[in-house]
Design a binder for these strands. Structure first.
Lengths: 137, 137
DNA sequence: CTTGAACCTAGAGCATGCTTCAGCTCTATG
DNA sequence: CATAGAGCTGAAGCATGCTCTAGGTTCAAG
């Protein structure tokens, strides 16, 4: 029922050193320990780790993830704050996607520019017009 | 016709210290200098800086951006490599967008979960099922 | 009981991308 | 030509997120 740290690494693909780092940083509150002091991860610890990985993929800083996991200790009292946190994450992710799509447009145009330039064997005379206001939004 | 560094900061919104850092790091080859040694940015320098900002927004590391700007010195000889670089960037950006969309799904589900939990005043009995294979792709 | 693999901790180290500092020079204005 | 604001440099410092090291402990197989 309990997993050793090496099993967690294997199952989730998170390096052991990183798991211990998260624990040290307070992202994994109250991991059980064996008599000898070795960590024993429960299923819900694994789920939390997966959620942490997800939050990291949204570029959420460690300190904010810690804030979230510390809220879990408050139980239902912190429901509203946790909800707000996920709404904020949703917004942050959307913002990042939109930002990436904007640069994707410019990259696309650069690709087309270089296609034409390689075709012609030279950049001379290949037209290029910067996109105005890319960074103003 | 030439811009001082403070004007570049104002026009592009890039901190002066960062511009100098880029110069030091070789991202801005051959910026002209006044008699007294002060930088004089041309229009094409500004365009390069904007492109650099764009590449940074794709999370391209400084060292790769330097590689690109150094290619510019080779003129038409480096056209093919520069084209490949933009194609690779396009791929990288697409990958990031797809990754973000995947986590967005999970975040959405967490939002719905917390909506239900807040509504009920408790997490007890609010169903939650992890998405399998989110990290396997 | 022995022994080697797996664990543990505290603390140092590292890669990235800036940012700050100290001390000095340039330049535009009255 | 004085001077204040803007610029310059090399070097140190900082924030983030790991990653590695050294030295010791635990655990499971034989």
């Amino acid at each position: 029922m309990a997993y050793r740290i090496s099993e967690v690494e294997r199952k989730l693909g998170i390096p052991i050193t990183t798991i211990r780092y998260y624990d040290r940083e307070g992202l994994l509150p109250h991991i059980a320990r064996s008599e000898g002091g070795q960590r024993e991860f429960s299923e819900s610890d694994l789920e939390l780790l997966q959620l942490i990985e997800c939050l990291k993929r949204t570029n959420m800083p460690i300190r904010d993830i810690r804030r979230f996991t510390s809220l879990l200790a408050n139980g239902d009292e912190s429901l509203e704050e946790r909800r707000q946190m996920f709404y904020e994450r949703r917004r942050a992710v959307q913002e990042q996607i939109v930002g990436l799509q904007a640069v994707a447009d410019l990259i696309d145009r650069k690709c087309a520019y270089y296609d034409a330039a390689v075709e012609a064997g030279t950049e001379d005379g290949v037209s290029w017009e910067a996109i105005e206001g890319l960074f103003s939004a």
